[in-house]
Structures are given as structure tokens and as C-alpha cells.
Design a protein around this nucleic acid. Structure first.
Lengths: 341, 341
DNA sequence: CTGAAAGCGCTTACAG
DNA sequence: CTGAAAGCGCTTACAG
């Protein structure tokens, strides 16, 4: 079946394609085209099963109604859920989304940005990997609107939507303090990124404010691309090294947390009896774990909504004086059973 | 920063844009353009930070190098992981992907197909919701290559990549039989879709072949859009109704399975002591559950690879006689602890 | 070895 | 109220 174009409709009706275009884009009234003609055009378009070619439209108007979304990994439930919210919100406004998983690699995200910049998207929502500052700056120069999510670069003046990681981590750690845990460890990943740095700082501040002695041995910083085995080793070291081992662990991501639960189980340690835990994020597994996990749940729906709102406002009104909106949301602390009752 | 076009480069060098186009698309040699000129063009293109406009190219060539992926929900870990594999595989071949979540709604998927059909994608990978037969047929008429995944319509002759659901379900149920469970229930969802029908049949066949009496009371078919509460009710009925309740449950999806674990826990039932379970799919939570779940893991990487391979072969060679490839893969049965040891 | 021209399918000033 | 024409940025037959 050959695709039908504006021209085909025009010829069939013996009118110009200008007219057909006008009618079909709803500008019939505006241009005072007679109702009869309008009706006829719409009817024939339907009959011929006309589908406007968005590529042609895009070339002409410079708009694609497509947004590029670059996240670490769509298979990671955190990003999967966040991606879903963003997709949903964009769809409401008539935008579609091109997903790209960067695997937290600056190289990949660079390629992806380059690719999407080739005239295919109207804007970006990006969770930038570390060392991608230059890419973000080049995006700035390209004049495409973009908003950062989950993390940002303090030295770059851009729009972003994040949560208050430091406060959330502080609160979670304080919860362990109030539960009278004495040896509170933190297992986190490389702190190059501002969100991870803030989480670690929140933990440190909470302990300091509670009069705990600083103990670097209680902090395990894993390499960026960490495996199950790294977490296992970290926990083993924690348990062995300190006199009475540890009695509680703060995991700064759910990926690490899930690996942590597996590792604890392998070591024969029971949550919370032997070791209590709190974590970031709220995957399904935290709910059906034998000791449902007390955790910091990020407001994914709000993050998605705000990111889309900020981005679209910049796309629709590029000359607006409201630029580089910085939005920091609060996370929810969900108390379950992993710190005892 | 204004976008630079082929023309800008041509003017700067006082050559035609034909020449620039030829050189930059690597056809310099082929057209015997002098090395000097080639070098110059490439140099200037780089210097001017030229990025070919894919939209224009797409309009001219009719190819976008973009594939539309329609799945139920990208936030569902099963589809998230599968989507990731597909993305990875397509990227290798220079294709990008447009994700759409249909929420298993035929209406939404119709809209999404319509949208993507407007000249934006070169082909489709679709996990079709029930009642979407007509859409698939209209896709057929549009002449865009597509491949179905996870399920298919027996009455439509199309390409698809699925697993042998009936065999997998048979095997899982047999596992329960061999473990000497006597009251083996099945909690599944609406069997309109062939994959769900096959899973239920696999269960029934296994029981029949084992000399179990057919008992419709042991089969709970949930509405398509099921909630936690539906699963809870189903389990409660199962436990209450049958003389000795049930001693094992086969969950046909991980979504239902996860809800099932929560529900069992609410009812004070311990896995596997009170009730054993097997399930389909293998989310993280099944690994760190208090009783790690014995389950049927689908070969997501292979499904993704095959789907991409089949689709691209049709895109690249539309006239090939190899059409409508039907591929059925085997699933892995992973034995953990939810059926006792 | 290189260029002029047509055309992909739209939108949109402009003219009448 | 309607149409002819230009142009978005490419590719590609064709000509020389």
C-alpha cells in the first residue's frame, strides 16, 4: 500500500495542497475556508487513510515532538519507573520519547547526545554520568533545551530536578541512631556524582550530630561498576574488622542494597537481629523481603512531572526569562522492619 | 549557535553540496573525488561542527533508522530488561528505539502504532495487547516490517519470537508434582492471550498426566488489570475452600507472584512450609525473598537478539522470500527454595 | 572528477 | 475564500 500524501488528496479533490494542509491542521476556520470544502477534505482524508508525514513536517517546522531521555539503564527498576512517569507525562502533551541507556558511561552518553542532536529531538532529559560535564556544556551551546535529573553539576548553571539527598540520608541515618544502633556503617559507590556525595555527607553529618566518633573503617566506597562480589567483600570486612562488627548498614542505592541482602544472607546474618539496614529507593523486592526494608523512596511521579514541565516550558517559550530552573524535592522515608520494631 | 548545513560547508569551500554530501557519506572514493578535496571537506565539516540532519535525510531516503517498540510497561522489570536487550542489540546495528508503554490496552497501542506509522520508524517490535488483532493486520497492510514478542495471534501469519510457554509451565508444575504436593493451584490472569492460555494448559496437562483429578476450584483467573487485593482474595479463597487448603501454587507471571508472596505473608502462611510456589519470570525480588523462588526464567537476551535479527532482516531485505519467521525459544527452569529442598 | 537540478512531503508567507 | 511558490536539508540520477 503506497503512502498517501497531501498532494494525493488535493488532486483527488481538485484543490491545492495548501488548502488541504490548512483544513487538516485545523486552520480551516481561521482562514475562512467554506464548511463544505472542509468537510469534503476531512472525509476524503479519512477515506484514503491519510497519515501526515511527521518527518516532512519536522523538516519544515524544525519540531519533532520527540524528547531524548538519557538514563543509566532502563532495566534498572528505579530508572524504569522514572522513565515510565516521564513517558506518561510527555504523552499527555503530545510528545514521544527516545530512550537511551548510557550505563553511566560518559562516552556512550556523548554518542547518544550527538545522535539525538542530529535534528531528531526538541529537547533532552538527562541523568548525566560522571565526567560528562563537557557534553552538557556543548548541549548548552547547541541551544537545545534540556533538564538534568537525579544529579547535576554544581559548576554548571542548568535546569535540574533532584531530591534533597543529604537530608534524606541524614534522616535515614538518624533513624538508626534513634534505634540505638552503635556501629552504623555506610556502603556506597564512588562519590564523583553530587547525589552520591550528598548521601554520604548526610550519613556523616547525622553521626557527627549524634556524638558518634568518626570511623572511616565503617565507610565502604565501592567502585562505580560494582558487582555482587564487591558488596560481599565489603560486608565481610565490616563484620570482621570492628570489635563487635557492625550492627547496622546504610546502603545508598537499591542496587547495592539488594546485593547487600544477598550477601548478608550468604554470611548467615539475619536482618535486623544481627544487622539492621536502611536503604535508598524502593524496588518491589524491598517489600517482599523476609525483613521488609526501611527505605528512602523517591517521589518518582513528581520528579517525572516536574522534569517534563520544566523542559516543555523551555521548549514552548524559549525566550522566557525563567531559565535554568532548579528544583529540589523531598523524599519519603518508609519505615518497615529492617531496623527492628 | 546556528545549525550548519551541507550548503554552508559547500559555500565555504566553493564546491557543490553534491560533492560535500558524497564525501561525507563516504562515497568519495566511489565517485573518484580527489583525495585533496575529500580531506578538505572532512576537515571543514569537523571544524564547523557539522551534524547531518537526520530528519532531512529521513525525508529524502524514507529511512529513519528508528524502531518502534511497543510493550506493556517499561516500568515492569520483565519488559524493562527485555527492552534493554533490544535497545542494546539495535544500537549495535545503528538503530535507535522509540519506547511506548501500552499498559496492555488495545486503544493505546493503536494510537501508538498510528503515531509511529506517520513516517517515523522503519519497523516495529510489539508485544501486542489482547484485542489488537486488527491493528496488527493494518500494520501488515502498511508494509512496515514488524515482529511480535512475548505473544502472538495464531490466526495471523506474522513473524514472532516467543518462548514455549506450555512446555515451561508443564515443567514447573511437574516439579511440584515430583515434590509430592497434592493440592496444586494455579493463579493466572485472563487467558485471552496465547501466552497465558499456554501457561494454563501446561499446568493442566501436567496434572492430568500425573493422574491428578481436575479441580476447577484450584484455578484462579484474575481480571486483566489485577491489583494486590485480587490476588489476596484469590489466595484466601484457595486456602479456605479446599479441605486441606492448597499446598502449592503456580503463579503464571511475576507480577502475580510478587503480589502472591505479599498476600501469603499477610495471611501468616510460610513458603514453602505452609504453601510452596513456582512462578514465571525472574525479578530481583525472587532472589532475595526469604524463600528464594523457584521459577521459569525467560532468555531475555536471546529474545531481544532474535527479535532484532528477524526485524532487521526484513527491513534490509524486504523482498526476501524468508518471511514471517516464527521462533520459539526454551525457557530456563531455576530451582531455588520455594518448593522445599 | 564535479555540479545543477529534482524531489522527499510538508507549512506558510504572499498574492489575488 | 483559494492557489502558486518557496524552502526546510538532504540524496541521487543525470549530464558533462
Amino acid at each position: 500500500m503506497k503512502k498517501v500524501s497531501l498532494n494525493d488528496i488535493a488532486q483527488r479533490l481538485n484543490v491545492s495542497k495548501t488548502l488541504v494542509s490548512l483544513v487538516l491542521s485545523g486552520k480551516g476556520k481561521e482562514h475562512r475556508i467554506s464548511d463544505d470544502v472542509c468537510k469534503k477534505v476531512i472525509e476524503v482524508a479519512k477515506e484514503m487513510n491519510y497519515r501526515p508525514n511527521q518527518i516532512a513536517k519536522g523538516l519544515r517546522t524544525g519540531k519533532t515532538n520527540t524528547i531524548g531521555l538519557i538514563i543509566a539503564d532502563i532495566a534498572n527498576p528505579f530508572f524504569g519507573k522514572l522513565g515510565r512517569e516521564i513517558e506518561k507525562e510527555l504523552a499527555k502533551q503530545g510528545y514521544r520519547v527516545m530512550f537511551c541507556s548510557s550505563d553511566e558511561s560518559a562516552e556512550k552518553s556523548k554518542e547518544q547526545i550527538e545522535m539525538l542532536l542530529q535534528g531528531q529531538v526538541d529537547g533532552f532529559i538527562i541523568s548525566p554520568p560522571r565526567n560528562s560535564e563537557d557534553q552538557i556544556r556543548s548541549l548548552e551551546r547547541s541551544n537545545k533545551p534540556y533538564v538534568l535529573i537525579d544529579r547535576y553539576f554544581p559548576e554548571i548553571d542548568s535546569s535540574y530536578v533532584v531530591i534533597d539527598n543529604q537530608e534524606a540520608a541524614y534522616k535515614a541515618t538518624m533513624h538508626l541512631v534513634h534505634k540505638k544502633y552503635k556501629k552504623i556503617a555506610c556502603i556506597t559507590i564512588n562519590a564523583d556524582l553530587v547525589n552520591m556525595r550528598d548521601r554520604l555527607n548526610g550519613y556523616k553529618n547525622a553521626l557527627r550530630d549524634s556524638g558518634y566518633e568518626a570511623d572511616e573503617n565503617l565507610i565502604k566506597i565501592l567502585p562505580f561498576s560494582h558487582e555482587n562480589n564487591d558488596v560481599f567483600k565489603a560486608i565481610k570486612e565490616l563484620v570482621g574488622k570492628n570489635k563487635n562488627g557492625v550492627d547496622a548498614i546504610f546502603f545508598t542505592t537499591s542496587k547495592v542494597g539488594i546485593m547487600g541482602i544477598e550477601s548478608l544472607s550468604k554470611l548467615g546474618l539475619v536482618i535486623p537481629d544481627d544487622v539492621a539496614m536502611v536503604s535508598f529507593d524502593d524496588p518491589d523486592s524491598y517489600k517482599i523481603c523476609y525483613s521488609p526494608v526501611t527505605t528512602i523512596a523517591q517521589p518518582l511521579t513528581d520528579i517525572g512531572k516536574m522534569a517534563v514541565k520544566v523542559l516543555l516550558s523551555e521548549i514552548i517559550n524559549p525566550m522566557s526569562s525563567i531559565k535554568n530552573q532548579k528544583i529540589t524535592l523531598k523524599a519519603n522515608f518508609i519505615i518497615r522492619k529492617s531496623c527492628g520494631s
